[in-house]
Design a protein around this nucleic acid. Sequence first.
DNA 1: GAGTGGTCTAGACCACGTC
DNA 2: ACGTGGTCTAGACCACTCA
Lengths: 254, 254
Amino acid sequence: MTTASSPLYVQLAATLRAKITSGEFPPGTKLPSERALCEEHSASRNTVRLGLQRLVAEGLIVASQGRGYTVRRQDVLVYNASRSEDHDRRVSAGVDAWVQDIEEQGRTPSQKISVSIERAQPDIAERLGLGPNSNVLVRRRLRFVDDQAWSTEDSYYPYDLVRGTPIAEPADIPQGVIAYLASMGHAQTRYLDDVTAVMPNPAQTSELNVEPGVPLLVRTRTGYADERPVRVTVTAMPTDRNVLRYDLGGPQHG
Amino acid sequence: MTTASSPLYVQLAATLRAKITSGEFPPGTKLPSERALCEEHSASRNTVRLGLQRLVAEGLIVASQGRGYTVRRQDVLVYNASRSEDHDRRVSAGVDAWVQDIEEQGRTPSQKISVSIERAQPDIAERLGLGPNSNVLVRRRLRFVDDQAWSTEDSYYPYDLVRGTPIAEPADIPQGVIAYLASMGHAQTRYLDDVTAVMPNPAQTSELNVEPGVPLLVRTRTGYADERPVRVTVTAMPTDRNVLRYDLGGPQHG
DNA sequence: GAGTGGTCTAGACCACGTC
DNA sequence: ACGTGGTCTAGACCACTCA
């Protein structure tokens, strides 16, 4: 047996994983307590915890102090990244593209917006083509779906570009920031998306209410108006509730 | 102090993290041994291990039995997803797009290809618009950069489409599979990419040589020829060495 | 062989949720 | 009040690496 030679905590994780993926433990099921699993598998609590930790890291179960472990409910929404900047759609709908995306999936989106002026972080400054001590206007969004925290989206604009405009106000802009910038002569004609994933740091863990161990999908979008970068947007999405979608119409790129 | 109230292992992780990110411990540095950190922080070994585990999960350090913990060397390559299917580039270069992408970054790519015929998994069958018991041709690629495992790419084709063609052979196809399919009248005109991230399972951990705790970026690309899905490709990339890039020429999508 | 991380035990007390 | 997970201790032996 190959399993007989693997560590106890790995076997324990495999046993529970099988019950979850087979459907014997459907989403919402409460797992036996750590101390019960100790007896059941003749293992110490530390060993049991090591095994459970594995399943938490895989996103299969969630732990809650005082309440126990439960099998996670899967509830994934699609964020359509390639069409999210479509001018026509946005202008006709009067809302931003994310809001529309979520509503089309029958859910209720909402967001909290805060605006500040900050010294640009080095990577942001580089993407915007700014000097090391430049200021940027930052619009931070915390996005909710059905009143549950869902993702964060932080946009950075060169401060010189937006000084004194409505973009610098902490309110939603009806037609969308993109369209407003376009009306000022900064129509974005090209977007560059870099996608990666990170493990959440403590701040993100609490802000987005993710279990430690669930990766965050991070998309960094740079928007260009006539080859000049005018915006960097960093979107962080817990992967247990998001899929990022790109619809590429064909081989028109080069 | 807020830090004074946080758990010991969190403080320990924060201390080491600061030394790493500040540059005091540059990449390649060997960390003090677990037992040395025990003394230094007056903590038990389990507690020290909890803290170190955190940094491993964040991808900052790697552990090696018998050798100790070392600060990870960051070495991230860009995979340009939006141009990777560009017919013109591929045909002119005579190699597949990933190979070209890596070579342009001054590295040496290589890959191992294996081909098999399998019963389609449910999610693959659904994306390909096939019935539940359909067969698919599977081309599995394990990709290397400078002889280090880098990513996996598994392509699924409806078996009826490729039976008896060179695609079903376990060799590289000089002009690329896409171009070959096009010459057979199945030119792919549209691609749909779903991007998410998962924690690696044990098989992926060993195949791609990733530390447990480093997330995998997973892109599922469905290729359409005249509205008919003809290919599904699943690419798994450890995020500690990959960034996925989309260059969107503008708001031409709808 | 000496030192490293990997696994494991058998306890302890604390913080949180539920009843 | 009780049971849950969260943190922590002080040991033990094994597996691996390197000199």
